Every structure is written in structure tokens, then in C-alpha cells.
Amino acid sequence: MQIFVKTLTGKTITLEVEPSDTIENVKAKIQDKEGIPPDQQRSIFAGKQLEDGRTLSDYNIQKESTLHLVLR
């Protein structure tokens, strides 16, 4: 499925993911596309910070959902 990741600069990245993917996985995909190390990424969805060990389905993130990426 496709999800979108919006950065603070307003750029939107499209990722191909599975509901079973962990947040860690997703951060690795963002690193592949953007070169941002996962330890600098904070992902926010529906106002909640997403934890690395959880999966997209844990957070009820579905296709075409938009995550927000904040850098630390």
C-alpha cells in the first residue's frame, strides 16, 4: 500500500509499505529516499509519536494515510 510522509519543509514523500511493516522499517525506507538517519526521525500520526517496534497496523495506518516527519 502507499502512504505519504510530509516533512516540515512541506515536501511529501510517497512510500510503498505493508500494514505489517514496523515503524523502524518505514524510517529505513525514508532514509533510502531522503538520506535522513532513522535516529533523527520522529514520525507523528494523528497527533501521536510512533514507536519503532510497533507496526503500521498497530496505529491503524491505512493506505494513503499521511505521516508527519519531524527531525530531532
Results as ranks from 00 to 15, higher is better:
residue 45 F to G: 04
residue 22 T to P: 01
residue 51 E to F: 06
residue 54 R to Q: 08
residue 19 P to R: 06
residue 44 I to H: 06
residue 31 Q to P: 04
residue 58 D to L: 00
residue 61 I to E: 02
residue 38 P to A: 14
residue 31 Q to H: 14
residue 36 I to Q: 07
residue 46 A to M: 14
residue 24 E to M: 12
residue 46 A to V: 06
residue 26 V to W: 01
residue 22 T to W: 04
residue 43 S to G: 14
residue 52 D to F: 02
residue 27 K to E: 03
residue 59 Y to M: 04
residue 32 D to H: 10
residue 68 H to G: 04
residue 10 G to D: 04
residue 61 I to R: 01
residue 34 E to D: 09
residue 31 Q to I: 09
residue 33 K to T: 10
residue 71 L to G: 08
residue 63 K to Q: 12
residue 45 F to T: 05
residue 41 Q to Y: 15
residue 63 K to V: 08
residue 42 R to Q: 14
residue 2 Q to R: 14
residue 21 D to C: 04
residue 68 H to S: 06
residue 1 M to R: 03
residue 5 V to L: 05
residue 5 V to N: 02
residue 21 D to I: 05
residue 24 E to N: 07
residue 67 L to A: 00
residue 65 S to C: 03
residue 46 A to T: 04
residue 51 E to C: 10
residue 64 E to A: 09
residue 30 I to W: 02
residue 4 F to W: 05
residue 16 E to P: 03
residue 25 N to F: 11
residue 13 I to H: 04
residue 34 E to N: 09
residue 12 T to I: 14
residue 38 P to M: 15
residue 72 R to W: 13
residue 16 E to V: 12
residue 41 Q to T: 13
residue 47 G to V: 03
residue 62 Q to R: 11
residue 7 T to Q: 05
residue 27 K to R: 09
residue 45 F to S: 07
residue 42 R to C: 15
residue 24 E to A: 15
residue 47 G to R: 01
residue 32 D to F: 11
residue 27 K to L: 14
residue 44 I to T: 07
residue 42 R to D: 13
residue 53 G to P: 05
residue 72 R to M: 14
residue 51 E to N: 05
residue 1 M to Q: 00
residue 27 K to T: 05
residue 49 Q to Y: 15
residue 62 Q to L: 10
residue 33 K to M: 13
residue 48 K to Q: 14
residue 56 L to W: 00
residue 71 L to R: 08
residue 48 K to L: 13
residue 37 P to K: 09
residue 29 K to S: 03
residue 29 K to P: 01
residue 10 G to N: 05
residue 4 F to T: 06
residue 60 N to R: 05
residue 69 L to P: 00
residue 30 I to P: 00
residue 15 L to P: 00
residue 30 I to N: 01
residue 34 E to Y: 13
residue 58 D to N: 03
residue 61 I to C: 03
residue 42 R to Y: 15
residue 53 G to V: 07
residue 37 P to T: 08
residue 71 L to C: 07
residue 11 K to W: 08
residue 64 E to G: 15
residue 3 I to W: 01
residue 68 H to N: 07
residue 54 R to S: 06
residue 48 K to I: 14
residue 9 T to Y: 14
residue 67 L to N: 01
residue 4 F to V: 05
residue 20 S to M: 09
residue 46 A to K: 14
residue 47 G to H: 07
residue 6 K to A: 05
residue 10 G to M: 01
residue 48 K to D: 07
residue 71 L to W: 09
residue 29 K to V: 04
residue 7 T to P: 02
residue 56 L to P: 01
residue 33 K to G: 06
residue 23 I to G: 00
residue 23 I to A: 01
residue 68 H to K: 06
residue 46 A to D: 13
residue 52 D to Y: 04
residue 70 V to C: 07
residue 66 T to N: 03
residue 32 D to T: 11
residue 22 T to G: 02
residue 28 A to C: 06
residue 10 G to E: 03
residue 25 N to S: 14
residue 60 N to L: 05
residue 72 R to F: 12
residue 9 T to S: 13
residue 10 G to K: 03
residue 46 A to N: 15
residue 67 L to Y: 00
residue 29 K to E: 01
residue 67 L to E: 01
residue 13 I to V: 07
residue 11 K to S: 08
residue 23 I to Y: 03
residue 34 E to I: 15
residue 68 H to P: 00
residue 69 L to E: 06
residue 12 T to C: 13
residue 46 A to P: 05
residue 5 V to M: 03
residue 64 E to V: 02
residue 27 K to M: 15
residue 61 I to V: 08
residue 35 G to W: 04
residue 22 T to I: 04
residue 36 I to F: 11
residue 20 S to C: 07
residue 66 T to C: 04
residue 62 Q to M: 10
residue 42 R to P: 12
residue 6 K to V: 14
residue 2 Q to N: 11
residue 32 D to I: 13
residue 67 L to T: 00
residue 63 K to A: 15
residue 56 L to I: 09
residue 59 Y to G: 02
residue 18 E to M: 14
residue 55 T to Y: 04
residue 39 D to H: 12
residue 47 G to K: 04
residue 4 F to M: 05
residue 38 P to R: 13
residue 53 G to A: 10
residue 3 I to A: 00
residue 8 L to A: 13
residue 58 D to F: 13
residue 43 S to D: 08
residue 49 Q to V: 15
residue 12 T to P: 03
residue 35 G to E: 04
residue 36 I to Y: 13
residue 67 L to R: 00
residue 59 Y to C: 02
residue 40 Q to Y: 10
residue 36 I to E: 06
residue 10 G to T: 02
residue 24 E to I: 09
residue 47 G to P: 05
residue 65 S to H: 08
residue 59 Y to T: 00
residue 66 T to P: 00
residue 21 D to E: 09
residue 24 E to K: 11
residue 43 S to R: 05
residue 51 E to G: 03
residue 8 L to P: 14
residue 12 T to L: 13
residue 15 L to V: 07
residue 71 L to N: 09
residue 23 I to L: 08
residue 68 H to W: 14
residue 70 V to E: 10
residue 32 D to A: 13
residue 43 S to T: 15
residue 65 S to P: 03
residue 2 Q to G: 04
residue 57 S to D: 08
residue 37 P to G: 08
residue 21 D to S: 06
residue 65 S to M: 11
residue 22 T to R: 06
residue 49 Q to P: 12
residue 17 V to D: 00
residue 29 K to N: 02
residue 1 M to G: 02
residue 11 K to L: 09
residue 13 I to F: 13
residue 27 K to I: 12
residue 21 D to G: 01
residue 8 L to V: 12
residue 21 D to P: 01
residue 7 T to V: 10
residue 46 A to E: 14
residue 48 K to G: 08
residue 64 E to I: 01
residue 72 R to H: 12
residue 1 M to C: 04
residue 12 T to W: 08
residue 32 D to Y: 10
residue 52 D to N: 09
residue 12 T to G: 02
residue 5 V to P: 00
residue 21 D to Y: 07
residue 3 I to L: 05
residue 28 A to K: 15
residue 23 I to S: 02
residue 65 S to D: 14
residue 39 D to G: 12
residue 28 A to S: 10
residue 2 Q to L: 14
residue 45 F to K: 04
residue 2 Q to T: 14
residue 9 T to L: 10
residue 45 F to Q: 05
residue 36 I to C: 07
residue 5 V to H: 00
residue 58 D to I: 01
residue 65 S to N: 08
residue 32 D to Q: 14
residue 31 Q to N: 11
residue 52 D to K: 02
residue 70 V to M: 10
residue 10 G to Q: 03
residue 27 K to D: 01
residue 40 Q to W: 11
residue 2 Q to Y: 13
residue 72 R to T: 13
residue 44 I to K: 03
residue 66 T to K: 03
residue 54 R to L: 11
residue 12 T to Q: 06
residue 34 E to F: 14
residue 28 A to G: 08
residue 50 L to Y: 03
residue 36 I to H: 08
residue 3 I to Y: 01
residue 8 L to F: 11
residue 9 T to Q: 11
residue 8 L to G: 10
residue 42 R to T: 15
residue 17 V to H: 00
residue 66 T to D: 02
residue 14 T to N: 05
residue 66 T to A: 03
residue 10 G to I: 02
residue 27 K to N: 06
residue 45 F to H: 08
residue 33 K to W: 11
residue 41 Q to D: 06
residue 15 L to I: 12
residue 4 F to Y: 13
residue 60 N to P: 02
residue 63 K to Y: 06
residue 14 T to S: 09
residue 53 G to C: 07
residue 33 K to F: 10
residue 28 A to D: 06
residue 45 F to M: 06
residue 48 K to R: 11
residue 29 K to A: 07
residue 42 R to K: 13
residue 42 R to I: 15
residue 26 V to E: 01
residue 23 I to P: 01
residue 20 S to W: 14
residue 14 T to F: 07
residue 13 I to D: 00
residue 15 L to H: 00
residue 2 Q to F: 13
residue 9 T to V: 07
residue 4 F to S: 04
residue 45 F to R: 07
residue 13 I to S: 00
residue 56 L to F: 02
residue 57 S to Y: 08
residue 50 L to K: 01
residue 39 D to Q: 11
residue 43 S to W: 15
residue 18 E to A: 12
residue 7 T to W: 12
residue 8 L to D: 13
residue 28 A to N: 11
residue 47 G to C: 09
residue 23 I to Q: 01
residue 72 R to I: 14
residue 33 K to C: 06
residue 67 L to H: 02
residue 40 Q to C: 14
residue 67 L to I: 14
residue 57 S to Q: 13
residue 45 F to V: 07
residue 72 R to P: 11
residue 64 E to Y: 14
residue 37 P to L: 08
residue 64 E to D: 14
residue 13 I to W: 07
residue 65 S to Y: 06
residue 11 K to D: 08
residue 56 L to A: 02
residue 37 P to H: 11
residue 69 L to F: 05
residue 3 I to P: 00
residue 30 I to D: 01
residue 55 T to N: 02
residue 65 S to G: 06
residue 4 F to I: 05
residue 50 L to A: 01
residue 59 Y to K: 01
residue 54 R to D: 04
residue 49 Q to K: 10
residue 7 T to Y: 12
residue 56 L to K: 00
